[in-house]
Design a protein around this nucleic acid. Sequence first.
DNA 1: GATGAATGAGTCTTCATTCAT
DNA 2: GATGAATGAAGACTCATTCAT
Lengths: 209, 209, 209, 209
Amino acid sequence: MSAGKQAGLRAQRKAQRPNEILDAAFEEFVERGYVATRVEDIASRVGVTKGTIYFYFETKERLFEEMIRHLSVSFADVSAYAKTLSGPYTERIKAFLRMSYDRLVLDRKTRELLRFVIAEGSRFPQVVDRHHDEFVVPLMNAAQKLFEEGVAAGELRAAPAIKIPDTVIGSAVMLCISQMIFADRKPQDVDAFFEAHVDIILHGLIAKD
Amino acid sequence: MSAGKQAGLRAQRKAQRPNEILDAAFEEFVERGYVATRVEDIASRVGVTKGTIYFYFETKERLFEEMIRHLSVSFADVSAYAKTLSGPYTERIKAFLRMSYDRLVLDRKTRELLRFVIAEGSRFPQVVDRHHDEFVVPLMNAAQKLFEEGVAAGELRAAPAIKIPDTVIGSAVMLCISQMIFADRKPQDVDAFFEAHVDIILHGLIAKD
Amino acid sequence: MSAGKQAGLRAQRKAQRPNEILDAAFEEFVERGYVATRVEDIASRVGVTKGTIYFYFETKERLFEEMIRHLSVSFADVSAYAKTLSGPYTERIKAFLRMSYDRLVLDRKTRELLRFVIAEGSRFPQVVDRHHDEFVVPLMNAAQKLFEEGVAAGELRAAPAIKIPDTVIGSAVMLCISQMIFADRKPQDVDAFFEAHVDIILHGLIAKD
Amino acid sequence: MSAGKQAGLRAQRKAQRPNEILDAAFEEFVERGYVATRVEDIASRVGVTKGTIYFYFETKERLFEEMIRHLSVSFADVSAYAKTLSGPYTERIKAFLRMSYDRLVLDRKTRELLRFVIAEGSRFPQVVDRHHDEFVVPLMNAAQKLFEEGVAAGELRAAPAIKIPDTVIGSAVMLCISQMIFADRKPQDVDAFFEAHVDIILHGLIAKD
DNA sequence: GATGAATGAGTCTTCATTCAT
DNA sequence: GATGAATGAAGACTCATTCAT
């Protein structure tokens, strides 16, 4: 019985090892970047030794790549989310933006993924590609669709920004980066930032009679 | 005489060496990041050998720091620039934003400096500090002042964004990063982006009677 | 009953394990040499895991040594074989040489043992010693005895080669090595080689009246 | 002046480094084999450190390959040598064999090259190929040609061995290997061996009336 | 000033070996 | 008996840095 418990613990432990390692890798890579992170640092964080890392991952490079995959963050579903929205388009846009802030600014994983894209992009072009396809494109497409619907509904002005939704959402990305870089140096009130952003966007987009 | 000329040329050349090295360092560090760049790569780009680099710069670390200083880009003067503006505030804001785009999006040095801040920030906190003090603060302060003047003049709405100018300028930063990361993958028409951005900002800020 | 059978089979299987491992070790060590062969390669070949190898053999080194012993090839009996021969000495020598070819050239184990002696001799001097005592000495002694008898019988010439039988048998060793190294690059007709070898030896040794 | 001398010494030294390293590599690789030899061992033997080796040679593998090339031993010229011979074919064959012994048995480089072919052949197939093309083929071809001329001249018997000269020369190869493996365990009198070998070969080949 | 040979600390990676289950 | 996760010593290779010329 106690043996059964033990076995269970061990099996559990084992099943979790890859995840533990990937999580530790995330922290270390975030802190020092790909090249400057030593495999041994990651091992220490998990509480194992170098060799164990190599038992689960072929190379440091592979570990990095799988760590990125393991983040499993994506904006592929934002379009579906947009479809669930109803009511006046100003409300829909506000909700859409709120969701964007929650994911971009408040979700550390998404935030740090952007760091990897910028810092390690030249070494891992697949990461850049994936980020483009799974984040930028879905987000911008969903936003654009929402805007266009608002225009069609007569609620929004046919502003040029509607074809370039980046210009509308951009500030959220900037806050994401600002948080990432300055964290303590320039603490921002995310909610106030969000409200100010929405306020100006809606005033800028609303159709005037 | 020809010897004198030769000597002159050589002296000139020598006087330029540190700058050549710093320029080469910029290119290499941009391409591969601090750790992955080899001193020898920089030397090769200049056309000298490793030893020569060490004649001019104590260490690789020092070279990086001086390279950053040598970029000598700064937004410390944007406030002075704002003061030169006249006419309606919508025009002033448009001009101010245009200048921001020219510096943030079109000036490669400023753009890549941001990359260093993101990628090497944890290794070189002074770079982050300096970036904060010389770029973010001056830009945001000047923008805020401009907005506040516009409100005082009755031309602009007292939007909450006026206290958080990041929300207004943010999209320019985002375009900067987008260019930096995706370059070829997502080519953007900077002028169209700018126009759409200005359009929505001004519509969002303008005071309605 | 079926359980009994099963158990019987399993027991049988287990009894064979050490041999299976030794055979697998032979193949792997032949292919890559001692250092480059991984214990895990051997385990895979047997269809077990690393740990099992260590249940049967203390260390990789010990496994190698036992693998060599397990080859259980030897020329210790060639002297006895020579005694069984009768008839004219030319026939006896031909038969003796034929046997040497069968063992040296055609028996893969003997052939690869020579490879180990050459390649791993400095790491395993016992292997060299044993090879010397169990192969070289018995073969040469038996040959020399046969030749001397032939001379005593007046059938063979008292050639100096009789005291240095290596000079007579040498070509068989060379063919062994040639097969081992060149296999496909220089395929040889062993029988033709043998016949040509015997022909010249006998012509060289025969006493002329 | 002393500076000049110094410079000379240093330059000399530098020019010799690659050769020193190749020579040291030869000794170490002979002693322990490719895998078991540490680059640092080679460096120590030269009196430098690891890094220096890598200054001259890209990888351990490359060093091994160049070491083999640097041995610059070959039998490509034996055919030319055979043409210089004159007199009765028995004398020519004796001279030809003597030369073979000098190269195969007495030249340590040639001898140890054979060790590499046997021990590292599977890892370095080019070495095997080259050995086949530059040693085996030229030697055997030259021998065969000599034998055939002897037959044409009516001095030698049309023995089958003439088409398979390996059967005639083989013992020299065997002595080479014997020396390589047993060195001290089975010291051989090379000259006596040679004489005995020649004696039996010539008796075996000579045409009887 | 410039060179480039040399150094050696540092890092990735491998693999024999152990041992709890 | 068998497994395979874990260890850690060892070795290939890199590269910032030095320094004699």
